[in-house]
Simulated assay, not measured.
Amino acid sequence: MLNVALLGAGRIGQVHAESMTATRDSRVVAVADVNREAAEALAARIGAAARSVDEIIADPAIDAVLIATSTDTHSDLITRATQAGKAVLCEKPVDLSLERALTTLAAAEATGRPVMIGFNRRFDPNFAALKAGFDQGRIGKGELLSITSFDPAPPPVEYVRVSGGLFRDMMIHDFDMACWLFGGPPARLTAHGAALVDPAIGEAGDVDTAAVTMVWGDGRIAVIKNSRRAAYGYDQRVEILGEKGLLSARNVLENTVEALTAYGAVAAKPLHFFLERYMRAYQIEWQAFLDAVTQDRPMPVTLREGVAALACAEAATRSLATGTTISLTPGMLG
């Protein structure tokens, strides 16, 4: 039984709290948040104590922490927690700065403590089945990967201003998915983007519609498409074309009823947002972290892989700004 603490009591922290309290393999003993009232409310709901980050880090009885705080705190908390001997599961991204993330990688690896980055989509049963089938050689060598990720509506502009931009905040999930499926980061990538959904997002210095082409050293290609607006719901699809065929993971729909009439076919829309679409993935993710820690297994999503996804986001940001293709150098990957 692991004693664990949750750092962050906001929306994503509350999502994680559900998964953390649903297993018998761990016990949430403490919650911390800059908003003390939020920490106290969540702690009371799950039977834990509201404590400060400093108290949690210093407590040797706490074996692991889940970091769900604002992104600009991730690097510092990963470093402090691992140096205190704790295992860490940290929400994506590692940091908004690739330079800081690389410093954190070196510091955490020096401690030897396990760190996992929370790319929950790897644990979605549909995407996991696609990955398993691909690794089993069902379609032979992958040649062309297509990832679609559309949100139903854009976030508030206030959030956009502090998010680090679409590539670091939203598409980073897809960068990780592409690297995971194709066995590592690409050699180079090219990004295109615009603010087509909300002009205020453009005024804030970000884009809400983007496409990135990634190319691996052997010529394999991935295309990622992101939009902050899809009127029909949360659109999440992955497709791999290989030498022997095609593997695809389609949307999860609100229901499986389909009406077939003389006028055509009508089916349900995709689930509306990530909380409905990926709640099961968060639960599997937490159990995978616990299994890795308690059974001394490799982390299923390493800190180094988190840095690679951030390096892709950094390269995409540079590509969009310069209108050029950006190569991913060894120095960007740690």
Score class of each variant (00 low, 15 high):
S97K: 02
S70W: 07
T69I: 10
A44L: 14
R45K: 15
A41F: 13
D95C: 06
V94I: 14
A48W: 05
D72V: 14
A58K: 11
V88G: 03
A58D: 13
V65P: 09
G47S: 04
V88Q: 04
A39Y: 08
E40Q: 14
S97W: 06
H74V: 07
C90Q: 11
L96R: 15
S70A: 13
R45V: 06
L42F: 05
V88I: 10
V94N: 03
D59N: 12
E55P: 10
A64D: 01
D72K: 10
A49K: 01
T71P: 02
G47R: 00
V88T: 07
R45N: 11
V65F: 03
S70I: 11
T73A: 15
A68K: 03
V88A: 07
T79G: 01
L77N: 10
K92F: 03
A41S: 11
A87Y: 11
A41R: 15
I56F: 09
A81H: 04
S52N: 05
R45E: 14
A41V: 15
D59L: 08
I46L: 11
I78M: 09
D72M: 13
E91P: 01
D54P: 00
A44P: 06
R45C: 07
D63M: 05
S70K: 02
L98N: 04
I57P: 01
D59V: 04
E40H: 10
A44Q: 11
L66N: 12
V88P: 09
S70T: 13
S97A: 05
A50D: 04
A48N: 10
S52C: 12
A44G: 15
S52M: 02
S52R: 10
V94W: 00
A49F: 12
P60F: 09
L89A: 06
V53M: 04
D63S: 04
A84H: 07
T71Q: 00
I57F: 05
V94Q: 01
C90R: 00
R80K: 10
A44C: 12
A68N: 07
A58I: 00
R51I: 03
R45Q: 14
A64W: 13
A41N: 14
A39C: 10
H74C: 10
A50H: 04
A87G: 08
A58C: 05
I46S: 06
A48V: 02
K92P: 02
D59E: 06
T82I: 13
L98D: 09
L77C: 06
L98A: 11
A50S: 14
C90Y: 03
S97Q: 09
A41D: 02
V65H: 07
D59M: 07
A50R: 03
L96F: 14
I78D: 06
V94F: 01
I56D: 01
A87H: 10
A39F: 06
G85A: 09
